[in-house]
Every structure is written in C-alpha cells, then in structure tokens.
C-alpha cells in the first residue's frame, strides 16, 4: 500500500467511526426540537422549543433535577472533605500501613458496586434507612471515597512540604496547615475531584433506584427512566428534550476538567507508574 492510499484509508475509517458514533445521538438532537417527534430521527423543517417548554415544569424537570443536585452535590462535598482529610496523613506522614492501605483502596475501586447493592438494601431495610436521602448520600460518598482518596493524595503530593514548614514555625497545627496552606495550593485538584464525583453520581441510576422509595425523592436519572419505560404513552419529543436538559451539566463539567483528567489515563494504564 502506498502512503497516499494508507492515509486515505485511515481518514475514511476515522470518518466512518465518527459517523457511527454520531448515529445514536441524531435522534435526541433532532427529536427535541420537533413538535411532532416520533422514534426515528427524520429531519423536518419544523422547529420549535415546544418540547422544552412542555417539560420545563416542577414535576417533570425541576424537582428531579433539584434532587439530582442535592444528591450529587451532597455526595461530592462530603467525599471531598472526607478524602481531603484522609489524604493529609497519607501524603505527609511516614506510616507503616500506608502502602497496604492505598493498595486496599485501589483494590476496592475494582469491586462491582452493583453487587454490593443487595446487602446494602438489606442493611438499609433492617436499620430503617430505606428511602432516606442522607443515608443514600453517605453510601454514595463511601463508594466514591477509594478513588477520591487516591486522586486527593496524588494532588497533595504535588504541594511541597517546605511551604507548610513556615506555618508550623508560626505554631499552626495540621488543621490550619491543611486548610490555610495545602488546600489553597491544590485548589485545581480539589475542583477536579469535586467535579469527578459530582458527574459520576449525576449519571448514577442503580443506587437511587434501589435505595430511594418514592418518586418525589428520585433524581433525574430515575425520572427519565420512568418517563420512557412507560411505553405507548411516551411523548418522544419531550423525552429527547428532557434528556438534553439532564445531560448538559455532565457535558459542561466534563469539558471543564477534561485537561486535568488526561493524566489519570496514563495512570490507569500505568506505564509510568
């Protein structure tokens, strides 16, 4: 094969892959602005925001989205505070059990959370926590912690200890040292962990689906599912519009941290360690 032919073949295959990946998106984008949308993506010259207007009400969009914000936001804040505290001794002190602890955390990130849901549900039922939003947030935070502690520790390792020494000379304890010196210096890292946890929970369907009992407590992930699992009476254009409203924050936040996440992929493949 000549160079030109190889180059053309590569470009054609990239074009085909891109088109194939675009395919399933077309319907959501097209149907959301079609007043009489059905299940297939048929571009027409009708264009309106009627579908958006139809779903933008308290029950359909606002309430579930607020629930999503409360659950994902609560989980993100709790996870960041707890993992930030935990990362401090792991980053700063010489501890005998440190390596084992970090490896255990990494091991935990691999365990399927789906499988834990049966015992979690059973525990929640026994201790009367079934349907409790705060308890659900605590569980979500615990499930996000292993990876969050890893990220936090890596970011904290990047803050030189010498900068803290000045604070110690002034008599600051570890709390002041952490909150006044370390955290401000690793603010981008804190933001990345916050957004990472938030986006992860924003899309989480299974955990709230299992642990929360009434539709009033459910986040948008579950509401959308309910919306479109009632086959036959689905307003497809509205489903598409709701999907876009629900997806937008995840996309925007991903774009915001995209640059910082790049490093974690060479970590996942860990050629450099």
């Amino acid at each position: 094969m000549t160079r030109v032919a190889a180059r053309t073949a590569a470009l054609i295959s990239l074009a085909l892959i891109t088109l194939a990946f675009l395919g399933p998106f077309v319907w959501v984008l097209v149907a959301s602005v079609q007043p009489e949308a059905n299940l297939s993506a048929k571009p027409t010259f009708e264009f309106s925001f009627k579908n958006f207007a139809a779903v933008l009400n308290w029950e359909t969009v606002y309430h579930p989205i607020i629930n999503s914000i409360v659950i994902s936001g609560g989980t993100a804040i709790l996870t960041v505070v707890v993992s930030g505290l935990a990362a401090y001794p792991l980053s700063r002190y010489k501890l005998r059990f440190k390596r084992h602890f970090m490896l255990t955390l990494l091991f935990t990130t691999g365990l399927p959370v789906t499988a834990i849901m049966v015992p979690v549900y059973s525990m929640f039922f026994r201790f009367n926590l079934y349907g409790s939003v705060p308890a659900t947030v605590l569980f979500l935070a615990a499930s996000a912690l292993p990876f969050a502690i890893w990220m936090m520790k890596n970011f904290m390792d990047g803050v030189p200890v010498s900068l803290e020494e000045a604070a110690w000379v002034d008599g600051a304890g570890w709390v002041q040292s952490l909150t006044r010196v370390v955290v401000p210096l690793m603010a981008p890292g804190v933001a990345v962990v916050t957004i990472f946890v938030f986006v992860g929970q924003w899309g989480n369907f299974f955990v709230p689906f299992v642990l929360l009992d009434t539709p009033e407590k459910q986040p948008a992930a579950v509401t959308i599912y309910t919306f479109f699992s009632q086959y036959g009476q689905v307003a497809y254009g509205e489903l598409a519009a709701f999907s876009i409203i629900y997806t937008a924050p995840a996309v925007v936040l991903y774009v915001a941290v995209n640059k910082y996440l790049a490093g974690s992929f060479s970590f996942a493949g860990s050629v450099k360690g």
Partner: peptide, 23 residues
C-alpha cells in the same frame, strides 16, 4: 460524548435507534 452521556440517556438514544419505528 458517548461516554459522558448518563447511561439512561445512552439507553434512550439506542432505544430510538433500534426500535421498530426507529432510525
């Protein structure tokens, strides 16, 4: 983009793509 989309939305996209009256 396909990866960032929440899984329920991904399912809705594929449902509309593969359903009987789908794309």
């Amino acid at each position: 983009a396909a990866w960032v989309v929440p899984e329920v939305v991904a399912a809705a996209c594929w449902y509309s793509f593969l359903a009987e009256e789908g794309t």
